[in-house]
Design a protein around this nucleic acid. Structure first.
Length: 379
RNA sequence: GGGCAGUUACCAGAGUGGCCAAAUGGGGCGGACUGUAAAUCCGCUGUCUUUCGACUUCGGUGGUUCGAAUCCACCACUGCCCA
């Protein structure tokens, strides 16, 4: 059993994009990659079989905060970790709960020691520290686990962002200490990714990248983006981070994003992505297709019996019609949620696979320029 | 034949003299969603107008009143009960 390895197989000639491969004990991950989000150990409305056979997912996410609250660590430990528990035998990445510091801002308190959360399930209080978040992620059993960070809102002003970043750095040191002191729990290697913060402030981001880089982790994450800042700022900061993070380690842009966001970031040299958008928006009737965006609730699809998306290689997307999916969504049938989610995820995986092919072929930038426009069209 | 209840916008259903273009729910239409407190949330849903506002609506006709979805008379239709 070995630590995560990353190899770059091909660099794009016209941009910073790269085609690589991550090797973990649970299998290989070609990059760039999109990772479906399975917060509570389930990619909502999608089975693990569908993730493999229809979506072609290589790695999925789980969330520390949610899994800690339910089913709880005793269940996960007795199950033998999340892989055994949910039947997903490919790699898993667990987020640390840092995002919940942002999204549950109304029911948590941050101190130097850590964060006290009030459970969204029953209101009970729980203290998360860098140390116990490492222990918890060890127990959940992610192949890649994330440092515990504070994710400040996109509009945070300089001083807040600076304090927040410095806190995240101190927490990182504590995460690394605890992570180093403890062992892999289930026989395969677990790998820690630190997270860059610094808001939308370039000097903070640069400093954070340098600090994070000095830790020489096997991979690095860019956090604190797509949290309310203008989209141009997101691109600017992402690009800057890619200039200051190690070239030979995978870069993970957390929580991003739209298909065109992902293409832009790939061009900057990002290798890994996750986002709830394909699943959540899918459940809410928004489909991403190789031709553009569809609101499947719109009446215009009522009698459109053509496949959902014949431009990608997902069997489900080619089998079911837009009219049928609209009917299912309008009728609030569970199957509609599944088809929409599977399709959107398959599209995202198709997109990063195509991106990789074009990087290898050496024409990524020109292909991307056309796709960014095409994918945003409202059909 | 007699008695009682009812008829409101796409549907269901409040409203019983002015604060009613008319509650609420459903349906319809549109939008939002970026490390998931989300199968959620937000608009619009008589006509014209960007707004202000104007106009036409509450089974039909006529009436009472300054003013009627609301009161009265007759008519039409529906449901239940008694013969």
């Amino acid at each position: 059993m070995a630590a995560l390895q990353f190899t770059i197989e091909q660099k794009d000639s016209g941009s910073r994009a790269r085609a690589g491969r991550i090797i973990t004990d649970h299998g290989e991950i070609p990059t760039p990659i999109f990772m479906p989000v399975g917060t509570v150990g389930s990619v909502k409305a999608v089975t693990q079989q569908q993730l493999k056979e229809e979506v072609n997912a290589k790695i999925i996410l789980g969330n520390t905060y949610h899994l800690y609250l339910r089913p709880g660590l005793d269940v996960l430990e007795q199950a033998g970790g999340l892989h055994r528990f949910n039947g997903w035998d490919r790699p898993i990445l667990t987020d640390s709960g840092g995002y919940q510091v942002f999204s549950l801002a109304g029911s948590r308190k941050i101190t130097e020691q850590g964060v006290v959360f009030q459970s969204h399930i029953d209101g009970s209080s729980h203290l998360f520290t860098p140390e116990n978040v490492m222990d918890t992620q060890r127990t959940i059993g992610g192949d890649i686990i994330m440092a515990f960070d504070e994710c400040p809102p996109g509009g945070s002003e300089y001083q807040y962002a600076k304090n927040s970043m410095e806190l995240t750095h101190r927490w990182l040191d504590r995460c690394i200490s605890r992570f180093t002191e403890t062992s892999d729990k289930y026989g395969y290697t677990q790998n820690l990714f630190p997270i860059v913060q610094g808001g939308v402030h370039t000097d903070l981001r640069k400093a954070s990248c340098e600090y994070i880089s000095s830790k020489q982790a096997v991979g690095n994450a860019i956090g604190g983006l797509s949290v309310g800042e203008p989209i141009d700022k997101m691109y600017e900061i992402c690009s800057l981070c890619c200039d200051h993070l190690p070239l030979d380690k995978p870069r993970y842009l957390m929580g991003v994003g739209t298909p065109w966001n992902i293409l832009e970031a790939i061009e900057m040299g990002v290798d890994m992505f996750d986002c709830v958008m394909p699943t959540r928006n899918g459940r809410n009737a928004m489909l991403f297709t190789s031709n553009g965006i569809i609101n499947i609730d719109n009446k215009k699809w009522e009698k459109d019996f053509s496949p959902i998306d014949s431009g990608i290689d997902c069997a489900m997307s080619n089998y079911y019609s837009k009219a049928y999916l609209r009917h299912l969504m309008k009728s609030k049938e569970y199957l509609g949620l599944t088809i929409a989610s599977v399709h959107n995820l398959a599209f995202y995986l198709w997109l990063v696979t195509k991106a990789r092919e074009h990087i290898v072929a050496g024409d990524f930038a020109s292909w991307k320029a056309g796709m960014v426009i095409q994918l945003q069209q409202k059909l």
